[in-house]
């Protein structure tokens, strides 16, 4: 019983989509999930692991601070690591505050931009 509750709590903390672990992002039925590795921190170079659903292809990525009008000082690179799995290297949040991830995805003939808001505190 206790174990079941603990499991449920764990699931609620990182809601998993069918397509992979991480924080879900979706729009118009298009879905992906991302994880930051290691944990995000100001001034630490991290990677973003992305899992896409339903054969969605990840074609572009960026991170920006909308309120400051600037993006990253580094150019991240996307590498496909498996079916629907990508690893984006070279992400460095250089200021604390609100950031936004921008994922450009392709489903068949249509391309679409998904965004995810996140706050970097420390």
């Amino acid at each position: 019983m206790k174990l079941a509750l603990a499991l449920a709590a764990g699931l609620a903390a990182t809601p998993a989509l069918a397509c992979g672990p991480g924080i879900p992002v979706s729009a118009d039925g298009l879905q992906l999930a991302y994880r930051i590795e290691p944990a995000a921190a100001v001034g630490r170079m991290v990677a973003v692991e992305v899992a896409t659903c339903d054969g969605l292809a990840l074609e572009g990525f960026d991170a920006r601070m909308p309120i400051h009008g600037h993006g990253l000082n580094y150019r991240p690179r996307i590498a496909a690591t498996g079916p629907g799995a990508y690893r984006i290297e070279g992400v460095l949040f250089h200021m604390p505050g609100p950031w936004q991830f921008v994922f450009d995805v392709r489903a068949g003939e249509t391309t679409r931009r998904l965004t995810a808001d996140l706050t970097i505190r420390r």
């Binding site: 990253l72 150019r75 991240p76 070279g90 460095l92």
Partner: peptide, 8 residues
Amino acid sequence: AAPTTHVA
């Protein structure tokens, strides 16, 4: 070396 690889 990652910052040098990725610097824009």
